[in-house]
Computed example of a mutant assay.
Amino acid sequence: MIEEEIPIIWILYLTYLEDVKNELFACFCIAVNDLGGDFKGVGKGSSAADKVVEEIRRRGGKAVANYDVVVNNAGILRDRSFSRISDEDWDIIQRVHLRGSFQVTRAAWEHMKKQKYGRILMTSSASGIYGNFGQANYSAAKLGILGLCNTLAIEGRKSNIHCNTIAPNAGSRMTQTVMPQDIVEALKPDYVAPLVLWLCHESCEENGGLFEVGAGWIGKLRWERTLGAIVRQRNQPMTPEAVRANWEKICDFSNASKPQTIQESTRSILEVLHKVDAEGVSQNHTSHKASTATSESAGAVGYRLPSFSSSYTELQSIMYALGVGASVKNPKDMKFVYEGSADFSCLPTFGVIIAQKSMMNGGLADVPGLSIDFAKISAASMCDLRVDDVNQSLTVFH
């Protein structure tokens, strides 16, 4: 039982309603599960949750069953300097903040995917973003929540599931233990809730965002990365002295880039490889031969193969599915292993087989500069091919 394992709050603050005039946010479906423990996660009681439920009912709210919105807002503290953190102090913070967010979201995820709609909000902290003395356990969990959100934003996008993260500064049962009372009263949840409601509204298209919020101010955060420096020369080892010599350039944020996806991050690294090769800088001090081979294969970059068509049978599709682990014992797999299924289809990864056919038929042997035995390349190496259209017209890229 979740109730016995960790205190979880699945809640939207409602006090903002006193000042809201716009009917845009007049109706939200809210699940409340606040065990009412103290800031250390000790004890429980229904008064905190009852207070919210009473407020909902007083304003005309009704009990309904759906999975439109999840707000992960559970939190406790076990503040200690790093040398004093016990295993228990570490584990319970991860369980409440990070694992709690995972469990609650997972409970709603499949429902959201099925209904092709969902709004998820994670609660991080400035401590996770910037670090804070005495909160190594808390900071690690809070930044972990941001990583969870970033991936859910990617995975949920195709199902119209948006996931965002806030780092609020607000007075609460938890923060009143570390903030002066007048600050707690000034930093009302009223100044956080409107952002929460907007990010959870169906008309909000924000996805994968991180926002600091408090005292009526809201700001969005993003990553920045310096242009950096190449610190290795042709046929010479990379040394710490070279790193030191280029340190100012490595840390110079002038003209910094702002990667937003892992693809953008990786792409810039690959661009550096091209630049390194063009400027004659070896990727490895022992790889002169590899560098020469790279230069010889330059003609393959951008080379476009002729169109290639292929057909397959239902049996081939089924055998592939069984070969990669699908089972007739799993109802979800029946559409991949039984041709009589109403929604019979191929596993998406079956396309690898089609690409493999193109290679095994010798088509790539005509690509200039690729002196490779393609018969020895595994299916996992197909990342070097991009399918441009349904006719399997392929473009080789670096």
Rank of each mutant, 00 (worst) to 15 (best):
G41Y: 04
A167H: 05
V231C: 15
I154F: 03
R304N: 02
A326E: 06
S311R: 14
V196N: 09
P306G: 09
D388Y: 10
A321R: 06
L305I: 13
L148A: 04
I154E: 05
I2K: 07
K220E: 11
R173P: 08
A48W: 02
Y303C: 10
K258S: 14
T313G: 11
P331R: 07
Q236P: 00
D389M: 01
G75F: 02
N207D: 13
D333V: 04
A136M: 12
D91E: 10
A107I: 00
H398T: 12
S378T: 13
F336G: 02
A63F: 11
K40G: 02
T292P: 02
R232G: 03
T177W: 03
R173H: 08
S371P: 00
W90I: 03
V243S: 06
E224A: 15
K62S: 12
L370T: 12
A186R: 13
I354R: 13
Q103P: 00
A167Y: 05
I2C: 05
A193M: 09
G351S: 15
A193C: 06
D79H: 00
M360F: 08
S127C: 14
I93L: 11
L315T: 15
F211H: 14
E206D: 15
G325L: 04
K62Y: 09
L322V: 06
E54M: 12
G228N: 11
R222V: 05
Q176T: 06
C200M: 12
S291M: 09
F344L: 09
R59Y: 06
L322R: 11
S254R: 12
T177G: 03
G214D: 02
E212A: 12
E314W: 04
V231M: 14
N137K: 00
K220R: 15
D384A: 14
L148Q: 10
K62L: 12
I30F: 07
F102S: 02
A186I: 01
S257H: 09
T266C: 11
R78M: 01
L146E: 03
P194D: 15
L270C: 10
W223F: 15
E271D: 13
I154Q: 08
C383P: 03
K258G: 02
